[in-house]
Amino acid sequence: MTRLIHQVLMYDNEKDILDTVVPFLQEGLGAGEAVLTVGTAPNLSCLRQALGTDSDAVEFADSASWYVQPTRTIANYSSFIAENATARIRVVAEPGWETGTPAQISEWTRYESIINEAFADISASVLCLYDRRTTHPGLLDGALRTHPEIVEGACPRCNDAYLDPAAVCASVDRDPLPPPPPGAVRLPIDDDDLSALRSFLAGHARHHGMSRPRVNDLLVATTEVATNAIRHGRSPIGCQMWREDDDLIVQVTDAGHWQPDPVPGFVPPDPGSLSGFGLWGVRMLCALVQLRTGPAGTTVRLHVPCR
């Protein structure tokens, strides 16, 4: 079997987990597969106990650190796959998200969808867990559209609500971004020397109490996006910045019509090739990256948490 099996289990209680997940893991261990379980702390401890000594052969990771943001999560799975290149892979994946902003919910839905494409050729069985009692309906709805198979009563069946990844990605990027607030600060970018832009951003970021490592993330990500606009976009190029809850948002706009791939920059580029590094790096650095391109030009909006 050389293709990805990507299933979802929406559970209502611990018994659902034990009835489905424990046999799923045991089957993988019995077949000598590389087995990874990512879950919330209570579920990890419950599964460890149920597996007994078998749990020694399972790699466990906490959802809270594994699912920080989509690009890093994909990078985590890519690393696990690379480390176990010769084995068939089996993963229990519980994102553990309960809620989020509409943009975050869309982005996580896109993430689940990208998995189908990015890892299509990986010989792996992935069972995703969603707690129906606590998870935001928008996330549950997204999970229904992004898993080709659904597990109910310990039996998988084909999911009729599944949508093609290109359709999911297009729907995420279809909604226009809300306009920047009136208080947003702005700076035109009319020089390829971006040190002035960085001083401007760093000054405002510190004013908002952003920590030093996050300021650096913001500067590296913005420099990359601005460089891209200078090299491939059209003037006028501008930068705006504002605070939104705990995040600082930086937006770079230009008058060009960038037409990126349908799923640009989510998957780690091939180590043998250096193309595609920039946007992937930007996504690694930011909590959220939103791209919009249309007749009015191209907009890239970066969200970086202050802490």
């Binding site: 690393s79 650096n216 590296v220 180590p271 250096l274 590094f277 992937w280």
Partner: peptide, 17 residues
């Protein structure tokens, strides 16, 4: 610097062996 090392580490796992 620590900040620079953080960025290198973040992107190095796959791209910059």
């Amino acid at each position: 610097s620590n900040e620079l090392a953080d960025v290198v580490e973040l992107v190095s796992s796959r791209l910059l062996p």
